[in-house]
Design a protein around this nucleic acid. Structure first.
Lengths: 250, 250
DNA sequence: ACAGGAAATATGTCGGAGTAAATAGGAGAC
DNA sequence: GTCTCCTATTTACTCCGACATATTTCCTGT
């Protein structure tokens, strides 16, 4: 409704501005609307302008706009009813753990409270996952963890390759739990971890060497010691949380 | 509800068969395709017939079919590329914690392994949530829990009202954690819990009175004792898991 | 045998027309 | 004057047919 700017220039109001290479048009629209909702530009309860009006405003066809709306509907962000229009759903209906939604939440300055909540979830899930991994891991799992650790040593967390290695390490642990439900959380937690390292790196150059913490977790899992693995992971998450707190204003 | 037949009769192959009252056409198509994928009728890597062919087969327009595909794409079940077609993604890309996907997974006979995994996740998250709830709950939270408990006593778990009260109780706990990320897991876990009680009820009449377990959790949260709350919830989940094991073939 | 380009094919995008549903507003009864 | 019921409008929903675009396939030429 507010339509912050979208300058009067024709090219600027083109949705293609936010369109990546492999991303389709309706995907770009969903991204745009998704970020607008997550950023609070459209608040829960707000009603989006009608299909025809909004599609015209974005210079896209109604089909493309509608397909984007279906995506947002599938993620629990909006709901449409004839005559009533398309309205933004209350926040507790949003699939906040959906990887794409999570990505939208992290464009721009993410909500501090939400980041804190994600870390809390991580502090609950990851130590438990490490405990299970210590019980169930096989040689292939350990090999993947070792590979990721080596990669982390080579490229520091300041590089994308290093952050990818970090994600791989945690993902390898979750895979070792033999639990699909835990694994899908990997995408969410991985995104949070990734954003955190980016943020951390932005604040200070490199506050602390993360390798020893990871090695302790790895060693405990190799030894097959569930308690030690959980405790080591607990320490790792705590330290990461501490680092984040240190680099965040609040 | 399962609609497994789809005989050769023309009217039977009409998609409207699986269409609920408030559900739109594209929603019905998504439901149909979603259940087919979750049930394994379409395996990861399979390529769906072309849009025109499939839409014609379902007696729907291409637009409606495409909107359904966008929904499935948003949930990570499929991906489409020009010329290549629409293919089912590998299972680790599926958003298994999406409430709708979870519902699709539970139409027909759900996968035993997956149910076990969900219980494992529940056993990790809920005690931790109870611990946080004991620290952060306010009077309004306690009131909601008490209301849910009273409702549980009135209608047993054999009724839908009773199951709703059970979900409300757990949801109230998650709300008391003041953590949105934990709360969205409520939808997933709640669905699992609900299905479990349905299944349990199917096997035996009513194996055990669930009220005392819930009361113990409630009392600990009222007392503000995090450790006791976590332990009580741990017992509750263990008993539920035991009940499920007893009523499941494997 | 290999490289480059043309054609084929499926998804992507578009604009419009007609249908169904839900709310708002008005007509009528009490 | 209030309430109920009906109608009327608004809006999303569905369908259609066409064109655009992106890949793959395959054919041609070297």
């Amino acid at each position: 409704m507010t339509d912050t700017d979208l300058t009067t220039d024709d090219s600027a109001r083109n949705i293609d501005a936010g369109r990546g290479p492999g991303r389709r048009l309706h995907g770009a629209i969903a991204h745009r609307l998704g970020t607008d909702i997550l950023s609070g530009k459209y608040a829960p309860g707000d009603i989006l302008s009608g299909e025809v009006a909004f599609a015209e405003e974005l210079n896209v066809s109604r089909s493309a706009y509608r397909e984007a709306i279906q995506v947002l509907t599938a993620k629990g962000l909006v709901a449409s009813r004839p005559k009533a229009g398309t309205r933004v759903l209350p926040r507790d209906r949003w699939n906040l753990l959906d990887p794409e939604v999570l990505g939208w939440a992290f464009t721009g300055e993410p909500d501090k409270e939400f980041v804190r909540n994600l870390f809390e979830l991580r502090a609950i899930v990851e130590p438990a996952a490490a405990r299970l991994a210590a019980q169930r891991r096989d040689k292939a799992d350990l090999r993947e963890m070792k590979t990721a650790l080596t990669a982390m040593r080579q490229h520091t967390l300041t590089t994308e390759a290093g952050r990818a290695a970090d994600r791989d390490f945690h993902k390898a642990i979750l895979q070792a739990t033999r639990n699909d439900a835990l694994l899908v959380l990997s995408a969410s937690i991985g995104a949070a971890v990734n954003w955190t390292t980016v943020f951390k790196q932005r604040a200070r150059a490199l506050p602390r060497n993360p390798i020893p913490d990871h090695v302790r977790v790895y060693d405990a899992i190799v030894a097959g010691d569930p308690g030690a693995a959980a405790e080591a992971m607990n320490v790792l998450v705590d330290l990461a949380l501490e680092d984040m707190r240190g680099s965040m204003p609040d």
